[in-house]
Design a protein around this nucleic acid. Sequence first.
DNA 1: GAGTAGATCCTCT
DNA 2: GAGGATCTACTCA
Length: 201
Amino acid sequence: MKKINIDFYRRDNVLLIARELLGKVLVTNWNGVITTGRIVEVEAYNGIIDKASHAFGGRRTRRNEMMYAEGGVAYVFLCYGIHHLFNIVTHNKQIPHAILIRGLEPLLGIDEMLVRTGKKQLDNSLTRGPGNLSKAMGLLTSHSGSSLVGNELFIADDGFTIRKNDIASSPRIGVAYAGKDALLPYRFYIKGNPFVSGKPK
DNA sequence: GAGTAGATCCTCT
DNA sequence: GAGGATCTACTCA
């Protein structure tokens, strides 16, 4: 299990980084309570030219300020007043690239995830979808701006590899308001994995 | 199984 | 004062 280096996040190709995040392991360690999950679904948000992004057109507000930070930090925001959505900020300072984590396969700390989500037993819904996985991992908007190379929150490579054939892409979900940009194939997921959101094929 | 309403609150206009 | 990068439960069939 090897923590991913900061240089990984500071590259310019957000689509490439998104694809490479598939199969990696997200780790949270709040006060010694460790939960981990393998990333099986992501969406890329490509900076100021991407209508679906909060940072479209260089828009800069208190909420999305973290997107303009240097790559390698978390961007967490509240959606629909209920769900905390966890993003990874990439690229350099002032370039608001981000990657939304949409699906995780639980690995360690499943009991803790059940407590956080109030569920009775492990099933697909525990960490499927951005709202669910943030809850299971204990991620809150207060973590927005946290480093992804610290001891509490980071992404690791445990040697797991995915065949190219097992990676699929599709348009992003829930961004119909973005017009033409809603059609861009910026969503990547592991084919057939039960923790990928949306309808199974 | 498919479709829809309701929850719920912070941020921006 | 509106609406959102969502989820669940409930209806109807």
